[in-house]
């Protein structure tokens, strides 16, 4: 290996003819496969997280609170929304959540899009068949057809159930999104630690978050490299799946190597299995007040819900 290497360049590499595809650059553009969509989705997600960090640094109502107070309040209200049996209760809660978002300077358009774009709409599609009498038996309010002389169609119970599930899903996601976009990631971690999540988990969570981006970059690189080498597309979803299979192995190899190096970097700085961290959280009066308000709000919510009947 030590002797100098003289490489003779094959002549085809030096010729300027297009080697494999004499037809030139004609052919239809194919729309991106799911891998491509996922990868672009991945970098979008990265940007979105960074944008959220932006929101978390604005001076709004929720940004001023301790992450533990926010997480605690969020949990209480989530349980409240889970236990509420009436659409009215959930809608009232949703209005309050929107008001909180406004007070925290979260742009309404962004907030609605972030919450509604995927899960609640998906939920709506999923629960639609449940409004029919064939799934949810009950009093038919809109007759669509009859079967054995029985009117069939949308039932009151089905409609109410669908509305209930969709609005509960929307309220729950709104609560979670509201807390996470108004809290910088490291404060959120500190909040989880404050709520009693063990240090080992916090450390794993913090590092995993960091390495998602790094591994995402390597997947993107692998994909780009593959795409650059692929000329024809045959059944693109199948090749895409083959790519997933092949790259998963290489990715694990990379992950393994990465974890080994990170481990050495930690050990080099004195890590001995139990990480110590800077603790900077202090509960102030405002946080306690906020927590008390959350308790009262949940109690109010459930009392009102009971008063509306069972």
């Amino acid at each position: 290996m030590a002797e100098h290497t003289t490489t003779t360049t094959p002549s085809w590499l030096l010729s300027s003819n297009v080697g494999l595809c004499p037809c030139g650059c004609i052919g239809k553009r194919t729309k991106g496969s799911f891998v491509e969509k996922t990868l672009t989705g991945g970098s979008d997600l990265l940007r979105q997280v960074m944008f959220s960090d932006d929101l978390a640094r604005r001076s709004g109502l929720l940004q001023r609170l301790d992450p533990r107070a926010k997480l605690g309040g969020m949990l209480l209200l989530l349980i409240g929304a889970g236990l509420a049996h009436h659409l009215e209760t959930l809608l009232a809660t949703y209005v309050v959540v929107l008001a909180l978002a406004g007070a925290s300077r979260v742009p309404l358009g962004f907030f609605l899009k972030r919450v509604w774009l995927f899960v609640p709409i998906f939920t709506l599609i999923v629960v639609l068949p449940a409004t029919l009498s064939i799934v949810t038996h009950g009093d038919v309010v809109v007759e669509l057809w009859s079967w054995h002389g029985q009117p069939q169609g949308l039932t009151a119970q089905g409609l109410r159930s669908a509305a209930l599930v969709v609005s509960r899903v929307a309220v729950s996601i709104s609560l979670v999104v509201l807390v996470t976009v108004t809290t910088p990631w490291n404060r959120l971690l500190a909040g989880l630690r404050g709520l009693g999540v063990p240090r080992m988990f916090i450390l794993v969570i913090g590092m995993a978050y960091r390495y998602i981006f790094l591994l995402l970059d390597s997947v993107t690189d692998m994909y780009e490299a593959r795409k650059a080498r692929t000329m024809a597309r045959v059944k693109h979803d199948r090749t895409a799946r083959a790519f997933v299979g092949a790259s998963a192995g290489a990715l694990v190899g990379k992950a393994n190597q990465l974890s080994e190096e990170v481990h050495q970097a930690m050990v080099a700085r004195g890590y001995r299995g139990e990480a110590r961290v800077l603790d900077t959280l202090r509960l102030r009066r405002a946080d306690l007040v906020a927590l008390a308000v959350a308790v009262l709000a949940t109690a109010l919510m459930l009392t009102a819900d009971r008063m509306l009947g069972r």
């Binding site: 080992m200 450390l203 794993v204 969570i205 913090g206 590092m207 995993a208 960091r210 390495y211 591994l215 992950a255 393994n256 990465l258 974890s259 080994e260 990170v262 481990h263 930690m266 990480a275």
Partner: peptide, 8 residues
């Protein structure tokens, strides 16, 4: 810890 982090 790093191994779990990278794998998650």
């Amino acid at each position: 810890v790093p191994m779990l982090a990278v794998f998650s």
